[in-house]
Write a protein that binds this DNA or RNA. Structure first.
Lengths: 205, 205
DNA sequence: TGATTTGGTTGACGGTGTCTACCTCAAGGG
DNA sequence: CCCTTGAGGTAGACACCGTCAACCAAATCA
């Protein structure tokens, strides 16, 4: 036996522990409830300890967004397995997207409905976002042949904006505000996805 | 002459002035920069004065959102004038929607990308949201005949989610993050709107 | 007239992000 | 071996914030 049991609660380096605690807070209560001091309290550490690792609150936030983007991209990529054709794979992607948005609304909001910290671009978040987007472009390429990447990207942008719009409406209370019943809402979602398929199929070879 | 020039800066009752100042702040710096104390300072009034009119910050926010929804609905409704047919009216609606989102990104974010205060429903915001939504349903009714309101609402939800997705992507920096050029972005928007038209036309009589 | 409501004031409390200063301890170079 | 240095932790302060409480003047109204 080594001396593991001697140290109290090392387990994780504090930096990593901060990120995880922050994700917990956001998952539970949302971004606006996130405070560095609260994170510190949860980890039984002084209110300045997290500051040593992330000089600014925003820099912790960037790290959290990065994690979210990656786990989101993983969920999307996993949706492809065991599908028969490109059509089903495409549909599965859309459903995985919506599922994620509904299952983790606060993370989804953080990634796509919240202004990113100013230094997000320098921090390389763009690449993680692009990785998620490219899952979509790849499936589109399997679906129909494109003469150029630009043409494919236009289709991708259409699909993405439609699904994203749907997701963001779903995870807000907009449906309730417009007094849609649950059944109506579900039907509307299915219909919207059909419409996307229809539009994509329009000029398919 | 009456005694107008005797009073310093009455002009508006404080309540109204607060709402307008709050909108100014949001337009300039975004929701997260809005504070009741700042509003009070701008109006040369004690930090508690606004509190007399809106007991909670959220209640001021509700009032601001209401204004935004109404001016948004106005802009949408105005887009219908002087169009030739229902098709053009529909297209004009979509463009007015996007224009508004791009022109007033922070207001747009406030209306559709920010969790509404808890008492928004009781405060009757739903009706204002519904009014905006119904502009869309009316134009759809002019576009093609529906056998039921539910069917029309499903189409409306599809159109709305597509355009909303587009708008929310446009007003975020997502395009930049995905390294779309301005021209590409514009082309993507036009393409997406075409796709919506295509899908809508699919089963048109 | 006297009571009460309305709309304003100041002051306090607990919470936050961030700055500065201090401490401690491990690693390394002379 | 000592001594510097830097990383990672601490406590304390400052300026904000939302909100509550107490007070106060003028208007409204019984």
């Amino acid at each position: 036996m080594s001396d593991e049991n001697l140290k109290a609660t090392p387990a994780l380096p504090l930096k990593e522990a901060c990120v995880r605690a922050a994700i917990d807070v956001i998952r539970e209560d949302g971004l606006e409830k996130l405070s560095l001091r609260d994170v510190a309290r949860r980890l039984n550490v002084s209110h300045q300890a997290p500051y040593k690792h992330f000089g600014l609150k925003d820099r912790l936030l960037v790290e959290v967004i990065r994690r979210c983007l990656r786990s989101f991209a993983e969920a999307l990529a996993a949706s492809g397995q065991g599908q028969n054709g490109p059509d089903e794979a495409m549909r599965a992607l859309g459903e995985a997207y919506l599922t994620y948005a509904v299952q983790f609304p606060l993370e989804y909001r953080l990634m796509f409905m919240t202004p990113w910290p100013a230094d997000a671009k320098t921090a390389g978040l763009s690449q993680d976002a692009r990785a998620a987007f490219d899952i979509l472009t790849h499936r589109l390429s399997a679906l129909k042949p494109y003469v150029s990447d630009a043409e494919r990207d236009r289709d991708a942008m259409f699909v993405w904006s439609s699904i994203h719009g749907l997701a963001s409406i779903l995870q807000s209370e907009a449906m309730q505000y417009l007094s849609f019943s649950d059944a109506d809402a579900q039907a509307a979602v299915a219909h919207a996805m059909d419409m996307v398929d229809v539009a994509l199929a329009q000029r398919r070879p």
